[in-house]
Amino acid sequence: MNILVCVKRVPLTGGRMTLTEDGRAIQTRHLGFTVSPHEECAAEEAIRLVEEHGGSTTVLTLGPAEAEEQLRDMLAIGADRAIHLVSDGEEWDPQATAAAIVEAVRALPEPFDLLLFGNESADGGNYQVPIRVAHSLGLPCVTGIKALSAQDGLLRCEQEVAGGRDVYELRLPAVVTVREGINLPRYPSVPGRMRAKRKPVAASTPQRPAARLRMERLVVPEGPGKQAEILGHGPEAAPRVVEILAEIGVI
């Protein structure tokens, strides 16, 4: 099974977000970066499917030159090769992102059996790139998957819904988006990191079309403006805590 996994480089945000001066991006000067959580699980799922069924995993990102770090991380946990669509550092809207991915997929000699994505990116949360890619490639798309298995070209997918799980069965080739919790992603090993250095990364520089959903500025919402009541220090606070719980009516 030949699988494409699409991932996005996002900052590791801590307790409070601050913005750049122009208000168009998060201030990342003191932050590390990672692969968006659902997509990290998509990569793990691809690697497990290839371990079980054979084939290969290709990981793709659209992002700045620095996003090669995230591609190498995915190569280190077992992806075979990478495609880097090097962006200009500006934000690409979801339609432009999907179009660039579709163009990259069409340019390859062999079609993929399965295209895996995260359900939504941590930063943009647009919930649409995989669906647009599927639509352009004429493939079915199932989203938000928490359990996935493949047998004889048939995919079985489970999606969490209120009160249980819905089941979908569909034929490959297909596009599937997964949610964190479908697996526990492995950490890269030292030999994995060494091997990753020698794996191929094909870079190209697509042109960014005009955005039709144009981000103008970001705003940090006002916090709840709470001033916490200090109930005490250490175990001596317990009686006061229990008083509060009784007042609220949960005891």
Binding site: M215, V220, P221
Partner: peptide
Amino acid sequence: RWGGSLLEEAAL
């Protein structure tokens, strides 16, 4: 954005 930790003003 970011699960509600940030707001985005945009043209659509």
